[in-house]
Design a protein around this nucleic acid. Structure first.
Length: 344
DNA sequence: CCTTATGATTTTTT
DNA sequence: AAAAAATCATAAGG
């Protein structure tokens, strides 16, 4: 109501044609049929179109001129009529705003994956997670390792957020434009604030449908990532050569007691770029497998014993060099209970 | 393909 | 709770 009144007053103030919509049809037609050149109307239209391009003073003057034009009432009535028609036809489409279950689902998923999550902390939260994992002190069992996974996830997250921001910015920019345009035009054209509002709504819906696409594709990416990493975390990837070397070195140089302390494990983990639990796994596997078939590991044992011996001791005794590597064990852990055959 | 090596997981033992 | 042992599942090599 208020809107209506405001609009009306605006129109009236501009043109003083309070009774535009009633009887002027005939006038217009009369004028037209009287042979008044059609060019006249074309001119007016053109001038109206050009209004926004002009400076305010110019426009003001031009507007005044237009309002005093004898064709103005007719044109205005036509516009009113057209508008009424379109409003009628649009009104049916007005029903809207179902809280889209689809988009809710996507939102929830993104939230659960930590993509759209507490977004101020986007980078910092991820960084914190990384730091916690890297610090090693965390209860770093098998659940959230795979820095690869996290890196990819944060990458996706970054893309998602920047895109989202872009969309939002574009949306508000566009909305502003449209609103300004409509407001500007509402001075010469019958446009109610409600209509502007509706227009904004339409724009927002359009943009949010675009956003949904973004969300959808982000979801897809996350799903793919998950299937490739988390679900495949049971998939085995061999450690690199250097890592196994470090581990073996430790194992064979502590063959009498191959139970690294927590600190030692952490250090090994760091050196090998694996997790502490992986170190534990490795030692568990190694111990049982070594014990189960010492013979099979003899060669390896010698190799690493030699290595560490050479590494640690310079040259203490020449004769023992051949001997000591073959029997590096001195304590409770199962010693090779047979004499090395393949060795020199 | 089949076999072996190997990292991870599950179950059992201590 | 930690280690041992059994088991699983895949990588890697012939």
């Amino acid at each position: 109501m208020e809107d209506q009144a405001r609009m009306m007053s605006g129109l009236v103030g501009l043109s003083g044609l309070s009774q535009v919509d009633v009887g002027d049809h005939d006038a217009g037609r009369k004028q037209h049929s009287l042979g008044q050149p059609q060019q006249d109307i074309g001119d007016i239209l053109q001038q109206i179109m050009a209004i926004t391009d002009e400076s305010l003073d110019e426009a003001q003057a031009r507007k005044h001129a237009l309002n005093c034009h004898r064709m103005k009432p007719a044109l205005f009535s036509v516009l009113c009529e057209i508008k009424e028609k379109t409003v009628l036809s649009i009104r049916g489409i007005q029903d809207e705003d179902p809280p889209d279950p689809q988009i809710m689902r996507l939102d929830n998923m993104l939230l659960a994956e930590g993509v759209s999550g507490p977004e101020k902390g986007g980078a910092s939260a991820a960084a914190a997670a990384v730091a916690a994992a890297a610090a090693g002190g965390s209860p770093n069992d098998g659940s959230i390792e795979h820095s690869d996974y996290r890196a990819k996830l944060t990458q996706i997250r970054g893309i998602y957020h920047s895109e989202l921001e872009k969309y939002e910015q574009a949306c508000s920019e566009f909305t502003n434009h449209v609103m300004n345009l409509l407001r500007e035009q509402s001075r010469t054209r019958p446009i109610s604030p409600k209509e502007i509002e509706r227009m904004v709504g339409i724009i927002h819906r359009k943009f949010s449908s675009i956003q949904m696409q973004l969300k959808q594709s982000t979801c897809e990416a996350v799903m793919i990532l998950r299937s490739r990493f988390l679900d495949a975390r049971r998939k085995r990837r061999n450690f690199n050569k250097q890592a196994t070397e470090v581990l073996n070195e430790y194992f064979y140089s502590h063959l009498s007691n191959p139970y690294p302390s927590e600190e030692a494990k952490e250090e090994l983990a760091k050196k090998c770029a694996i997790t502490v639990s992986q170190v534990s796994n490795w030692f568990g596997n190694k111990r049982i497998r070594y014990k189960k078939n010492i013979g099979k590991f003899q060669e390896e044992a010698n190799l690493y014993a030699v290595k560490t011996a050479v590494d640690a001791a310079s040259v203490s005794s020449q004769a023992s060099q051949a001997n000591s590597p073959a029997t590096p064990n001195s304590g409770g852990y199962p010693a090779p209970c047979y004499t090395p055959d393949g060795m020199l």
